[in-house]
Design a protein around this nucleic acid. Structure first.
Lengths: 235, 235, 235, 235
DNA sequence: AATGAATGAGTCTTCATTCAT
DNA sequence: TATGAATGAAGACTCATTCAT
């Protein structure tokens, strides 16, 4: 009798919650992230158009249909993959930024953080190229994107205000900085050099901040009679 | 007149080739170049994988099969197209270089020449991206490619030797320069800005040569106590 | 012993029901009917091949797997659905028939009943079309199906025997009647007219009967010299 | 001389036209019709959703891609196929109509023509069903379509005007006629009877006309006391 | 040489069905 | 028993490439 009651009680309880297979609340999120992680390397390796989802599914040990449970199309999967990487990049850079106060150090930290990210995840460059190649319409997924560029502008303004930097048009400054970062990253990507990007941080800063001339603005063009006329002054 | 006719008849026999059909010896070459020219814009516009050769043929006013008379495959056509563009770039830069003597001016001229090329042929950037995206194995088709980098190295060495530039590792110098050029070009390509690249020549040179610091190497970090420690010295 | 055990078991079971969980004995049947009802509208709306069972499950508020507990396959579900509708139709017509005695009235009642059914359940026409389109092998699920046609034949025979109708081959009569009913139903279905079918009952009867009643065949073809020679006489 | 001139002329002429493979001007049309013909039987046999174009291509002895040269999609091919059949039907009926003058005979001819068409091309019924099943939106592909219904209305009006037919609402008349034709065709289609439709022409006419002719309505309902109340009079 | 019709391998995508929970 | 995640067979469609003319 007691048994019966207990049983029926148990049954009543069990009937309520587990109607059907208990839903693993986190499974979708975990599976999704798993797919995104594999997919990043996958698309970077094969390039978007040559990437057969069957192959990705095989690598993940799932069926092709499963991919489509999480992403409605190959295109969506790819774009989600790139977004995911970009978010990680932003996150990492932001974490690096809040660790220091002075504008100069912030710039250095941000730079180092970008470089470190691409050292750790070199395939992301490939993804950026692929995205640009296939989906031209998309906004730039770049180191110095819209949001961040405001921060950078502020830092440079501060540095000019407190007399550390020359009175240079901030807009151009940010553009040059941005271009240099790009350039360094893509340069390594294309030349396939094995040096880390992070090791280039000092070089970049040195050049940008100190320039190459032995004596500032001395303009002793003793090698040639010409004058190259640098004019990156205030607008 | 009758003579003429006879003559022309005779001539016809002998001259059959040059007269009947001048047998335009250059036609194939011209046709080939026509295809390459159209193809550059075409691939840049649609991207390699989305580029249907039927469409290119239509635009050229020829049949699809004709393309295959000039290029053995779509891939060959594409790569030949990019090569063609790269050759034009090299040519233009070399022409610019021989016009001046002094290393400093040469650098400026080369830079300006690169930028001018991409201002004139903006689609070439797209081609470079496409090539990298689809055919990773291929060597870099870059502004500062192997051949040119030797020249640049020489120029910078000279400038250091004669005391214009700081004693900086030439290798790094060339790399930074190269990166900055890349970066500027891709930056415009991605952001879609309408400013010409050529107008950036001075900015680039100013930053690279003069740096951003108000006073060279003074290291007055009055904004923060930190010291960012630039170390781009001789190796 | 075995019996006893069984009995006691049964008792236990019976006890369990009213106490622990009422164990709704009809639940499966009700669930099944619910599915069939939803499914009829569903298949009619989307068409058999475009009908995704996931969607039906969602509409029913159950999981896709549940459908498979009640029907072994999509095909079975669909055919059961159509059967279900056909049974309802037969039922309704039979109810209408037993309400009257005279053959003439029975025919009218049956007709009206058919029409009323499709006025009330217009989607059933779509189901019939779908069934025919996908499963050609299946026997016709038609107003005048095998079983009923015997009844109809009887009624017409009676009407001929008692002199109400002309001496027409009953077989053909039934066929024409059947065709006309079909035609009216599909006509509305296809043209999408909003008039009720029921309102057509009189038209149909008038045409059919006034064409069949004795004492006609006046045949004054004064518009043309031709004679179209109606020959629907005894075979 | 003349020869020479002629020859050169000829050459000039020949050079102009046959640049490349001479285009068989009729081939596309012939091929297209071949595909449509095979496709009609094919879709009728398998049903639209089960029809794998690979199979149709095999039957035609061509590759799947060839089908797509002529029709942009399976859907387009199917709809074009049905259209093609409908056009043939219309054509045949129109040919039948112009052969006679009197309205009565025209009706008979049209009717017989419809029936003959479906006797000759029984699969067309299946196509109509398939089209309705898959592409509900489409306008009715019916015997008595919009265009023809005007003609029919005229014929019936004439017959009423000259006193052959009872004063019945033409609209309803046409609808009943249309419904009966449908019904007869679908009835045979569904029951799979082997009798020709054409043989039913007289039956249909007899029922319809002897039901419509003046001087009837005798209404001796001696079998039952009821009165079924025919009311298909003027509106 | 040029043409363009034909080919068919290659992929994305869908969804009925299964089955572990 | 109900669930819903996973499966994978099936099929539409594309387009580089071939080849008869």
């Amino acid at each position: 009798m007691a048994d019966a009651t207990t049983t029926s009680d148990l049954i009543t309880v069990t009937m309520r919650k587990p109607v059907g297979r208990p839903k693993d609340e986190d499974l979708p999120a975990r599976r999704r992230q798993e797919i995104l992680d594999a997919s990043a390397l996958f698309f970077a390796r094969l390039g978007y158009p040559n990437a057969d989802l069957k192959l990705l599914a095989d690598e993940l040990g799932v069926a092709k249909g499963t991919l489509y449970r999480y992403f409605p199309s190959k295109k969506h999967l790819f774009l989600a993959t790139v977004d995911n990487c970009m978010q990680k990049l932003s996150q990492q850079v932001n974490v690096a930024l809040i660790q220091v106060e002075s504008p100069l150090e912030r710039i250095e930290h941000a730079l180092r953080s970008y470089f470190r990210f691409f050292d750790l995840h070199p395939h992301v460059v490939e993804l950026i190229v692929q995205e640009r190649a296939e989906f031209k319409q998309r906004a730039l997924p770049v180191p110095l994107d819209e949001d961040n560029s405001a921060l950078w502008r502020q830092h440079f303004s501060d540095l000019i205000a407190c007399g550390v930097l020359r009175e240079v048009a901030v807009e151009r400054l940010v553009q040059m900085m941005s271009s240099l970062i790009y350039g360094v990253i893509f340069n390594k990507y294309i030349s396939g050099s094995s040096e880390t990007l992070e090791s280039k941080t000092e070089d970049v800063l040195d050049i940008v901040f100190n320039g190459l001339m032995k004596e500032k603005n001395c303009n002793h063009m003793n090698c040639s009679k010409g004058n190259h006329g640098s004019k990156i002054d205030n607008q």
